[in-house]
Write a protein that binds this DNA or RNA. Structure first.
Lengths: 176, 176
DNA sequence: GAATTGACGTTACATTATAACATTACAAAA
DNA sequence: TTTTGTAATGTTATAATGTAACGTCAATTC
């Protein structure tokens, strides 16, 4: 189905990219593992990059992953304050900024909210499917979509830095 | 260039959809006309729909179109207050909400800002290309993109209500 | 151990958006 | 033409989101 255009100089053997980085919960997906895996990944990646996953940053990442859905900065702050009475807005925004920069969380622009990344160990594009009924979000990294957007942009002389793709609708289980 | 897939029951003579609803300025595009045309379209469409394009709404639409770029609600408010001293935040937010509902303006989620629609007379999808250097925005309604997203979503049992597609990068003239 | 740097604390404030209720303008019904 | 209902706007207050600026402390390195 995928058309490889004759642009690339050599016909590489490509590992087909995993497309659904985070599925909807209904698809036999055990959420408990996500959080645990995400924490492990973050620890490992920070070690590799020589960055400090401080207790604060670790806890904020935990709090984001406590939910399978996008969470608001001030909700994270409220939870954080339960154990960290002097936490203030900058505390949370700084931690979230760090976590975003490292790709551990994504910001959902259309919701002013943050979501744990389903593939934190490597840089990638994202497309989000957001269910208007249950609030869950699936995260995709679909090369066909990114490639098509790149091609369309290039036609207009536009060079893409990054994509914000947030699709709102109803997920399979909410339609049943 | 356009490929018509054999999905539709009858081979209709299709007016190929205009894909670039609003180009970048450099492409020989005269901005003065946009505003004028947009105002005319809004007048006509409101008449057709039996809706009231009140002086306030008309002026807010004017103010949005004073710029070729996304504008902030509070900037619109400041401008509005020059002639309308008692305007307050709800004044502007209500007008913008109306204009959005009618498709006369779009909200750019990643910027908390509003932009005149390049094709206000009909409902459509939008994809925005936002230049990080000059701030200009091109608006597309590209059926290939929307179709691909629909297909991808459908594969996961997801039904799309609406898309938020905001691509950040550099436009042709800013790359030169 | 002094200097540098990065992380966090702290205060204050800026920006963005909405709730709630009062008033006015308009249009349809009586 | 009054009445009356509804939509639009006025008005006040506040909620929600996000950042600037500067101080302190701890780790790293020179």
């Amino acid at each position: 189905m995928q058309v490889i255009l004759g642009i690339h100089p050599e016909p590489t053997i490509t590992m087909p990219k995993k497309r659904v980085l985070m599925p909807f919960k209904d698809s036999g997906h055990e959420h408990q593992h996500c959080q645990h895996d995400a924490m492990q990944t973050a620890e490992r990646v920070c070690a590799e990059r020589g960055l400090r996953l401080t207790p604060l940053r670790r806890q904020v990442l935990q709090l984001v992953w406590d939910s399978h859905e996008p969470v608001k900065a001030y909700d994270v702050l409220a939870r954080l304050q339960e154990t960290h009475a002097n936490a203030a807005p900058p505390t949370v925004y700084r931690a979230l900024e760090f976590l975003q920069e490292q790709g551990f969380v994504h910001r959902i622009q259309s919701m002013n909210a943050y979501l744990g990344c389903g593939a934190a160990s490597e840089s990638h594009d994202s497309q989000f499917l957001i269910c208007r009924d249950c609030g869950e979000v699936a995260e995709l990294d679909d090369a066909e979509i990114s490639d098509l957007l790149s091609r369309k942009a290039r036609t207009l002389g536009f060079h893409i830095d990054n994509e914000t793709i947030e699709i709102r609708g109803r997920c399979a289980s909410c339609r049943h």
